[in-house]
Lab assay of single mutants.
Amino acid sequence: RRRVRAILPYTKVPDTDEISFLKGDMFIVHNELEDGWMWVTNLRTDEQGLIVEDLVEEVGR
């Protein structure tokens, strides 16, 4: 599965499916959606939700 790492921290918008995360958090990407959004699991918190791909970088497989 594709893995990405947060290059900046992010605080979710209330009442959305987004998740908050810290710089350096690692994610497993489950689905890539329209407009640059991805459905992921945060490996640090085990939380699932939406993040925007502009805030992450690819991690070598």
Score class of each variant (00 low, 15 high):
T41S: 08
L55M: 14
T16N: 04
V29M: 04
E47K: 07
V13C: 14
D17P: 10
V40Y: 03
R2G: 07
F27W: 00
T45D: 03
M26E: 15
P9V: 02
K23L: 07
T16A: 03
R3N: 09
M26G: 05
D25H: 01
R5D: 02
L50D: 00
E32R: 11
R61Q: 15
R61M: 12
G60T: 14
I51T: 03
I28V: 13
D15S: 11
D15N: 13
I7S: 07
R1H: 07
V13W: 09
T16Q: 00
V4G: 01
G49D: 02
T45I: 02
R44D: 01
V29S: 02
V29T: 01
L22P: 00
E53L: 07
N31K: 15
G49W: 00
D17L: 11
R2K: 14
R61S: 14
V52T: 14
V52W: 12
V59G: 08
V40P: 03
P14W: 05
F27D: 03
R5A: 06
P9H: 08
K12L: 03
V4F: 10
R2T: 09
L8D: 09
D35A: 13
E47W: 01
P9I: 01
L8I: 09
I19V: 10
F21I: 04
R5W: 04
D25G: 03
V52H: 14
E32M: 14
V56T: 13
R3E: 13
D17R: 14
E34G: 12
V59F: 10
I28Y: 10
S20Q: 02
R2Y: 10
E53R: 13
D54S: 15
E57Q: 10
L55R: 12
V29A: 04
T45S: 10
R5V: 13
W39M: 10
G36K: 06
R5T: 07
G24P: 00
K23I: 09
E53C: 10
F21R: 02
R44P: 01
V29L: 05
D25Q: 03
L55S: 13
L8M: 15
W37V: 12
Y10E: 02
K23F: 06
T16D: 00
A6I: 01
V29W: 00
P14A: 13
H30V: 06
L33I: 10
I28P: 02
E18I: 06
I51W: 02
L22W: 10
I28G: 04
L8R: 11
I19G: 01
L22A: 10
V59I: 12
G49V: 00
T11W: 07
V40K: 04
A6N: 01
G24H: 08
V4S: 01
M38G: 03
K23Q: 11
Y10S: 04
G24A: 05
R2C: 06
P9Q: 10
T11M: 10
R2D: 08
L43E: 13
R2M: 11
W39E: 14
I7M: 08
W37D: 05
R1C: 11
W39T: 07
I51G: 03
N42H: 05
V59W: 09
P9W: 03
D15Y: 08
G60V: 12
E32I: 15
E32P: 06
V59Y: 09
R1K: 15
V59K: 05
N42D: 04
S20A: 04
T45G: 02
V13H: 14
M26A: 08
G36T: 02
I19L: 13
F21E: 02
S20I: 02
H30K: 09
N42C: 10
R61C: 14
L43A: 07
W37L: 13
E32K: 14
G24T: 01
I28C: 11
G49C: 03
E58C: 09
M26V: 13
R3D: 05
A6W: 00
G24V: 03
R44E: 05
L8E: 11
V4K: 04
W39D: 07
R61K: 15
V40R: 02
L50N: 02
G36L: 04
E32W: 10
R3F: 14
W37A: 13
M38N: 04
V4T: 04
D46A: 15
G36Y: 01
M38E: 00
V29R: 04
N42K: 04
R1L: 11
E47P: 00
V13Y: 09
V59L: 11
L8V: 12
F21W: 01
R44A: 06
T41R: 10
D15P: 02
S20T: 08
G60W: 07
A6E: 02
I51V: 14
M38R: 05
H30N: 09
V52I: 14
S20D: 09
I19N: 00
L43T: 12
V52D: 09
F27H: 03
R5C: 11
P14D: 13
V59T: 09
D15C: 09
M38P: 02
P14L: 08
F21Y: 10
M26N: 13
V4W: 04
G49S: 00
V40C: 10
W39Y: 13
W37Q: 15
I19H: 03
G49R: 00
R2S: 08
E57S: 07
G49A: 01
R44C: 05
I19C: 05
D15H: 12
V4Y: 08
R44Y: 04
W37Y: 14
E58F: 06
L43V: 12
D25N: 00
A6L: 01
T45Q: 00
H30F: 05
N42W: 01
I51D: 03
V29P: 00
R1E: 15
F21T: 01
D46Y: 10
A6Y: 02
V52Q: 15
V4R: 04
L55F: 14
G60H: 11
G24D: 11
P9D: 15
S20E: 04
V56C: 09
D46T: 13
P14Q: 11
A6K: 02
R3S: 09
K23D: 07
W37N: 12
M38K: 05
F27L: 07
N31T: 12
T45F: 03
Y10C: 04
R44T: 06
R61G: 15
D15E: 15
S20G: 05
G24Y: 06
D35T: 10
G60I: 06
G60R: 09
G60C: 10
T41M: 06
E53Y: 09
D17Y: 10
E18Y: 05
I51R: 03
A6T: 02
R5S: 07
F21C: 10
D17W: 09
F21P: 01
M38A: 05
A6R: 01
D25W: 00
V52G: 15
D15T: 07
V56Q: 02
T45A: 03
D17T: 13
